[in-house]
Amino acid sequence: MTQYLFYPGCAMESSARAYAASLASVARTLDLDLAEVKDWNCCGATEYLGINLIPAYALIGRNLALAAQQAKQQNGSGAHTLVASCSACYLNLAKADHYMAERPVLGDRVNEALAVGGLGYKPGTLQIRHLLDVLINDIGISRIREKVTRPLHGLRVAPYLGCMVPRPDYDHRWSDHEQPDELDRVLRALGAEVIDFPLKSECCGGHMPQISPNTAFELIRRLLQGADQYKADLIVTVCPMCQMNLDAYQDETNRHFHTRYRLPTVFFTQVMGLAFGEDPGALGFGSEIVDARPALARIGTAPVAAEPSGAGPRAKAAGLPMPGRRPEERER
């Protein structure tokens, strides 16, 4: 069994407890061994970078250095992979690793700072990956499918990745920057009905609810509107920040626009656990602000056959042939 180093990030201990709980359960089912990086610190989210450059990278650098150190001690096979579950953490770790090499002066200064704490990090030592990437590429769809005991038939889900997982994608790990299909494939393996959600990699608003609420509400509204147009029961996300914005600010957004969306938003590990037969309570269900229970009640019911009304452009045309979607031809 491969052991991965795991960087949970601050949200997993507070706002995204449901993510942490469901991940623990799913990891058990899939024999995924995640070793938490000891005494990790906050990655700085999107805040520190806008204040001070070298300190921001040194902050991330400490995590990389600790993880690399731990990897060396454990000396297990494959343990040079550092997995993050939060998109911003994933991006920050990957970004520091990437830029410390691309801009040597940055790498040198970060290491100079780390040296004060007796630490150091050589870029490229660790492979930084997002949890979803590990689940789909290492564990594999077939293993996930094997473990499904309660298929999510009848549940229409909107796969929602947000921005910082498929972009900027320094290591070219994702199928696409705009319309990646990794999450779709996982959810389909669980038996859910997955809508072809065009906004799957649009922004949730990030920290905007705290800075420019009107900007944030508009971004949140678009996502709710999109998921609603496709008659999704549930939005499934891979990121604590996305979950927070869509879930906790849904009411305020509705008030702002006089809309009445009720779209529960949960983590992909939660629906995985559900399909694996785990008890919803143990997966953190119930901690969402927009209640997911009505949606979950749909599991096992007949699927609604509905593409968004007036979605003319995508309706299967009887007339001229459509170009085939040939993902294998995508180069990157």
Binding site: L53, A58, R62, R109, A113, V116, G117
Partner: peptide, 23 residues
């Protein structure tokens, strides 16, 4: 709030980092 064990180490690192700023 949760405080990490190596907070002093982190503080020292950040203090040094500020001196090394690119601008």
């Amino acid at each position: 709030p949760h405080r990490i064990d190596g907070i002093d180490q982190l503080k020292a690192i950040l203090a040094r980092a500020k001196e090394l700023e690119l601008t």
